[in-house]
């Protein structure tokens, strides 16, 4: 039963991801992306990773969607002629995407490669989240802070200089 729910959710996830890539309207694409993130967080929750699910939901479905939506509201929409031109190219550019997904899924379903991750699961469970984040992976947290610093710095620099121009 549980597996059936997972398969349905995974199917919906692929569908909403495809929708995100193929839809013409950028705002609708952002909403589809948020739905994909929300579906992913449900899958994560069902697979026993509640913390990852919470992060996925708050950052990817929440924060990122808000940033995308505000960016779209700040930018000019292309005029109908440009849009029509783009739409012509769109189909030829993305037609391969669903085909690739169907082929890859087919290969996976036919070959059923056995991925065995049971060997290490017991050791992982012994570490608490706090312990892992602050003690075992302290260096990476410091690194991630610098990544965020670089990102924020970039946005500030690029937008500040743009407004000056």
């Amino acid at each position: 039963m549980n597996n059936t729910v997972l398969y349905i959710l995974l199917g919906l996830l692929v569908f909403s991801s495809l929708f995100t890539a193929l839809i013409k309207n950028t705002l609708k694409a952002v909403i589809a992306l948020a739905i994909a993130s929300a579906l992913l967080s449900i899958i994560m929750f069902l697979m026993g990773a509640p913390l990852a699910a919470v992060f996925e939901l708050s950052v990817c479905a929440g924060l990122v969607t808000a940033i995308f939506a505000s960016t779209i509201s700040l930018t000019d929409q292309p005029n109908p002629e440009q849009q029509a031109e783009k739409n012509k190219k769109r189909l030829s550019r993305y037609i391969y995407l669903p085909i690739i997904i169907i082929v890859v899924t087919g290969i996976i379903l036919i070959t059923k490669p056995g991925l065995d991750f049971t060997s290490f699961t017991s050791t992982v469970a012994e570490n608490t989240v706090q312990n892992t984040i602050w003690h075992t992976r302290g260096l990476d947290i410091a690194g991630q802070i610098i990544v965020i610093l670089a990102g924020v710095f970039g946005i500030v620099i690029l937008f500040k200089e743009r407004s000056k121009n």
Binding site: D140, G143, Q144, F153, G154, I157
Partner: peptide, 17 residues
């Protein structure tokens, strides 16, 4: 190998900017 990934990302993000 994970720390490697984190520091590679720092380099990449700064390069894009």
């Amino acid at each position: 190998i994970f720390s490697l990934y984190v520091f590679l990302e720092i380099t990449s993000v700064a390069s894009f900017i």
